[in-house]
């Protein structure tokens, strides 16, 4: 009974740290104090420890400099900026990614078939892209061609008034390469056909105009031209064109031509034959 109440030295030392921390409950505290009152050895030891313990508290620590705070907030700002650009990488997303990797077999199969479909799509896309690029290529060629045509039209218009018959011939020959002649070109050709002093140039102009005979205006012009021509060769050539085009509207003009004075007999026969063919 007495042993229980009275603390042994060993037991007391066991409580030393708690005693220093002031961390003993009331009963233990009383027991330790009682033991210290009775045991001189322990009293000395505890006193020394307490002195040391108190001394430790007196060890001063300097204040951290203000730079530490400044640096901290700078670091925090940098971190926030980095976080904002780097966007949310969280533990959660990492786990989700891992779960995606370690999924059952069927997902692999599904993924594989999706991959095939994707591959097909990519290939399809690629080839259609090739189509796109080839049509683009086509378009480029077409624009180049129209540019060449424009250039030829301009050349033709520039050369058609040249004093040299050879140059005028060349000018008219340019029109053979023109698929869509504009009004200027057609006008120039008719002017040449009806007024050019050189028969050969007029014949070539007629040939050139025949190309554009699909145009009603061109056909009308050709019919009118019958009355204006006085060269037998051109008259015959025009008559041939009328047959070729099956231009029935020309019959009236052809009859007028027959009434003309001093008409070449050969031409007369040719015209009569033409009227027969058309009617």
């Amino acid at each position: 009974m007495k042993d229980d109440k009275d603390m042994s030295c060993e037991h007391a030392k066991d409580k030393l740290e708690d005693w220093l921390h002031n961390d003993l409950d009331k009963a233990d505290r009383l027991s330790v104090d009682k033991h210290l009152a009775e045991c001189v050895n322990c009293q000395e030891e505890f006193a020394a420890d307490k002195q040391l313990w108190e001394s430790l508290a007196k060890m001063k620590v300097p204040e951290p400099r203000e730079e530490m705070r400044v640096n901290f907030y700078a670091m925090l700002d940098n971190f926030k900026a980095a976080e904002a650009t780097n966007k949310p990488f969280s533990f959660q997303t990492l786990i989700e990614k891992l779960r995606d990797i370690v999924l059952p077999q069927w997902t692999v199969q599904v993924a594989f078939s999706l991959l095939l479909v994707g591959l097909g799509w990519v290939i399809g896309n690629k080839t259609s892209q090739n189509n796109v690029s080839s049509t683009a290529y086509q378009q480029q060629i077409e624009t180049l061609a129209t540019q060449v045509e424009d250039m030829k039209s301009n050349m033709m218009l520039a050369l058609i008034e040249n004093p040299s018959a050879t140059e005028r011939l060349r000018a008219v020959s340019y029109t053979s390469d023109i698929t869509h002649a504009d009004e200027k070109v057609i006008d120039a050709l008719f002017t040449t056909l009806n007024n050019d002093p050189n028969v050969n140039v007029r014949l070539v102009a007629l040939e050139a105009l025949t190309q554009f005979a699909k145009d009603a205006a061109v056909r009308e012009g050709l019919v009118k031209s019958l009355a204006l021509q006085d060269s037998p060769m051109v008259q015959v050539a025009l008559a041939d064109v009328m047959v070729k085009l099956q231009e029935k509207g020309s019959v009236k003009e052809l009859r007028k031509l027959l009434d003309k004075e001093g008409l070449n007999d050969l031409v007369k026969n040719k015209i009569e034959q033409t009227i027969k063919d058309l009617s």
């Binding site: 530490m68 901290f72 670091m75």
Partner: peptide
């Protein structure tokens, strides 16, 4: 916590510069 942490590092290293850097490291 910057002061208690600084005190911890200062008691362990007894160097002010080092302790301040270490505090910064902890928060980082």
């Amino acid at each position: 916590y910057n002061r208690p942490l600084f005190a911890f590092f200062y008691h362990m290293t007894h160097k002010r510069d080092v302790s301040e850097d270490l505090v910064q490291n902890v928060f980082y």
